[in-house]
Amino acid sequence: MPNSSSTKNTVSPGGFKHYLREHRQTAGESIDQLWLKPFGSLMTILLIGLSLTLPLALIVVLENGRDLVGSWQGQSTVSLFLSEGLSEPEGLALSKALAARDDVRKLRYLSKAQSLQEFESSSGIAVSLELLGENPLPAVIIVEARNADPAALDALRGELSSLSGVAFAQLDLQWVKRLQAMLQVGVQSAQVMALVFTLVVLFVVMNTLKLLIAQRRSEIDITLLVGGSHAYIRRPFLYLGLWYGLFGGLLAVTLVEAFLWWIEGPIANMASLYDSSFQVRSMPVMLFLQALVFSSLLGVVAAWIEASAHLRRALPR
């Protein structure tokens, strides 16, 4: 009857096919395990989902903030007020030279007359040249930079202000700087939040599995005694962690999408008041996938930590 006197020959090698079958079976059994205690499973998934929703929503809002900055890139302009003595052909020649530069996206030349016209239309005040004697406004070249970065814009302004024929170069960077600073605060807040809620998810999954492992302690001991390896015993718990993480992640992305759908209308409405066509963008596919992979991995890692901790305390190796 005995297989062998050696431990080597007591195993019937199942091979890779068996290994895959075992994984498939364990994955299915762990899904069943979720259904065995639907309320408890739902609570765990809800906790994970809600914990991941906040940092994920913040990341998506920041992505939209970046889009907003991008949509205002046209306003990243340097206004060059030309010297009094510069004639119109010289001003046009300077425009042509600037348009050929790589760091200039496009530009617009406004002659003295066009500047006055634009002032009148934007301010609604008619200027009487008879009263003033002559047009006090200079010719202007409005340069739209290719790079919207505040530092690059500032450097461009400095360079253009030193050009011959340019009396003064103006750049209003304050709003760009403020917006970028706000985005930076947002990014760092999202990072801290992601870290905190990552720990929350780890704790939730570990605690859920701790209870489950305690309930199945005798089964684990018997399995160890009949020759089950730690990997074999850990496997169902890893799959459970995976399902908790995956379903929690799915819940989080669903909630974030619902939130975006909810604010889409009011944001578009607000943007239109600022003459902007900005629209809230839904979650990019890559971020969606990253969120699911991340939440699933979190579940697996938490399960690994908890199951390994129990196995260290179980029967001696």
């Binding site: 297989n3 062998s4 006197s5 050696s6 431990t7 080597k8 007591t10 195993v11 160890l224 005694l225 009949v226 020759g227 089950g228 390896s229 730690h230 074999y232 190796r317």
Partner: peptide, 23 residues
């Protein structure tokens, strides 16, 4: 047991060893 000093059985060999036992 079966030529194995049980104190020196490594973690990986222990499950294999236990499969040669019936308890």
């Amino acid at each position: 047991v079966n030529g194995h000093d049980l104190k020196s059985l490594s973690g990986r060999k222990l499950p294999q060893y236990r499969r040669s036992l019936g308890v």
